[in-house]
Amino acid sequence: MSNKEWPLYEVFIRSRAGLSHRHAGSVHAADAQMALDHARDVYTRRNEGVSIWVVRSSEIIASDPAESSAFFEPAADKIYRHPTFYEIPDGVENL
C-alpha cells in the first residue's frame, strides 16, 4: 500500500499580500499541480489564501530537536545584541 501512496507535500499559505507564507498542513498528490489543487481545496475553502507554496515533504531539511540546545546555544550568551543591554542615562532622548 504505502509504496503506491501518492507522495506527501507540505503546504504553505500566504493569507494576504504583505504577510509571509505560513505552514498550513500537508496533502498527498501525484504531482506538483495536483498538490496545489488539493491544497487549495483543503486549506482555502474560506478565502484563507492569496498564494500557495507546496514542497515535497521529503525535500525539507530540518534541524534536529534533540540537538536544539547545542544548535542554538551560540545566541544564548550574547545579550549585548539586544537594545535593553545598554544603559542610557535619564535625560537622553530619542535613542
Binding site: M1, S2, K4, E5, L8, G25, S26, V27, H28, D41, V42, R45
Partner: peptide, 25 residues
C-alpha cells in the same frame, strides 16, 4: 465538503507521528 476537509487536516496531523495515510485507511 468541510467534513472531508476536517478528515484531511486530521490525517495530515496523524501522519506527523509516523503512521502513513495508507495504513490508517
Amino acid at each position: 465538503q468541510d467534513e472531508a476537509g476536517h478528515g484531511l487536516y486530521l490525517y495530515s496531523a496523524a501522519e506527523t507521528l509516523g503512521t502513513s495515510r495508507g495504513q490508517m485507511v
